[in-house]
């Protein structure tokens, strides 16, 4: 997938996934890369930025194996931001779908 395109959408995916359940970085990276081809390393800068902007907060959670892990959870501000992004995404993807439908229709005639 196009890199620029992915950048914007990844932010939304990260927020949605963390909104669903608090996760640590590695877990989140795995969950995303299962479905979207992404360099997992670039998720960390994204997580750090979202945390600095106050959309995410972090806490240390114990794990059964190894040292405690840094969990990310969404803040109230983050939820607001996520909902705004979801609306934007819906509008955007509907418009794109529309274009594709019309374009494909013309191609067949």
């Amino acid at each position: 997938m196009n890199v620029q395109f992915k950048k914007g959408v990844l932010e939304l995916c990260v927020l949605v996934l963390i909104d669903g359940r608090d996760q640590y970085g590695y877990e989140l990276a795995q969950n995303i890369s299962k479905k979207i081809e992404v360099a997992e390393g670039t998720l960390y800068p994204l997580l750090r930025r979202l945390t600095k902007e106050g959309y995410l907060s972090t806490y240390l959670g114990e794990s059964t194996e190894g040292p405690p892990r840094k969990y990310y959870s969404i803040t109230a501000e983050g939820e607001q931001y996520m909902n705004a992004l979801i609306d934007e995404w819906k509008q955007f993807s509907e418009a794109v779908d529309q274009f594709i439908k019309e374009g494909a229709g013309h191609g067949e005639k």
Partner: peptide, 29 residues
């Protein structure tokens, strides 16, 4: 953060090369 990522990855049986492969180019990070 990356130290943690490596620790968990190798606990799950991944080699360092595999983890690095998944993380991608340090330059991009």
């Amino acid at each position: 953060d990356f130290e943690e990522h490596f620790t968990i990855g190798s606990n799950e049986g991944k080699t360092e090369e595999e983890i690095i492969q998944e993380l991608g180019d340090p330059k991009d990070i």
